[in-house]
Simulated assay, not measured.
Amino acid sequence: MKIHTKICGITRPEDAIIATQLGADAIGLVFFAGSKRCVNIAQAQEIVCVLPPFVSVVALFVNETAERIHDILTQVPIDILQFHGDESPEFCRQFHRPYLKAIRVQQPADIQAALTHFTDARAVLFDAFVNGTYGGTGHTFDWTMLPENLQGHWILSGGLHADNVADAIRTTGACAVDVSSGVELTAGIKSPEKMAAFMHAISHF
């Protein structure tokens, strides 16, 4: 079983190149000003330019205005939108792009509610809940809250790194994972060694 992987919070072209050489299926660009991994349009354009064919570009937003999202989409070739705030399904689908909806899991009910509510999402992304923070926290959540044979398309995120991702996949049955802080030297600066170790850890599935 191939485990699909997104490396999020890319801020430098050189990190994007290494991520894709190591086999990442997608890279994530953060357009949330409250994140240490936020990129501007010029940075995003430089990163996208170095990507090989068939690597997806995911743009992450948190409670952003529709106007700014449309503006970014006219300037940066984005494949998938990721919404990490309190966006409604109606808001997410208005851009006529595939989208991911991130859910910060606090209790088991959050999991099924998200899959029921966001039925047209490409996938729901389950992340750890940290008050006042939207992603990239380095925290995990209780993976056993995910029911066995969970139906629908979903992605596991939150505090993943080379030393725990294999256990996370075995515990949850995830077929897609999202990593950011777990492969970094500092916020937004990826470590080639940590990325390589992460990709190696999931290569045995």
Rank of each mutant, 00 (worst) to 15 (best):
D127Y: 11
D71C: 09
D163W: 00
D71Q: 13
I103N: 10
V124P: 09
M199C: 06
D25M: 02
A24H: 10
D71R: 11
K101H: 01
S157T: 01
P89V: 04
L73F: 04
V179F: 01
E184P: 07
R37V: 07
S181P: 11
I189C: 07
L73S: 03
G159W: 06
V30E: 05
A102N: 01
G152A: 11
S56L: 15
F129M: 10
A19W: 05
Q43S: 09
E184H: 05
I7V: 05
L160K: 09
A162C: 09
G182H: 04
F126A: 08
S203A: 12
F91Y: 05
A102P: 03
A197I: 11
G138H: 01
I3Y: 10
L22D: 00
I72Y: 00
A166K: 13
D142Q: 15
C8F: 00
C175S: 15
L81E: 02
A176F: 09
R37H: 11
P53V: 02
S180G: 03
D142W: 12
C38F: 06
E67N: 01
H200I: 11
V179N: 00
T74S: 12
E46A: 09
G138N: 08
G158S: 07
M199Y: 07
D71A: 11
F31T: 12
I169Y: 09
E87N: 09
A33K: 15
G152S: 08
L100T: 08
A114E: 06
A44H: 14
E67H: 00
P77A: 02
D110V: 10
P77Y: 02
P52W: 12
P192D: 08
E67F: 01
D120P: 04
L73N: 06
F83T: 07
A33L: 15
L150S: 08
E87R: 04
H161Q: 13
K101G: 01
I41C: 13
Q21M: 11
V39C: 12
I69P: 03
H204V: 13
T20P: 02
I78Q: 01
P98N: 13
F118M: 00
D86Q: 15
T5M: 07
P89F: 05
L185I: 14
V58I: 12
D15T: 05
S203D: 05
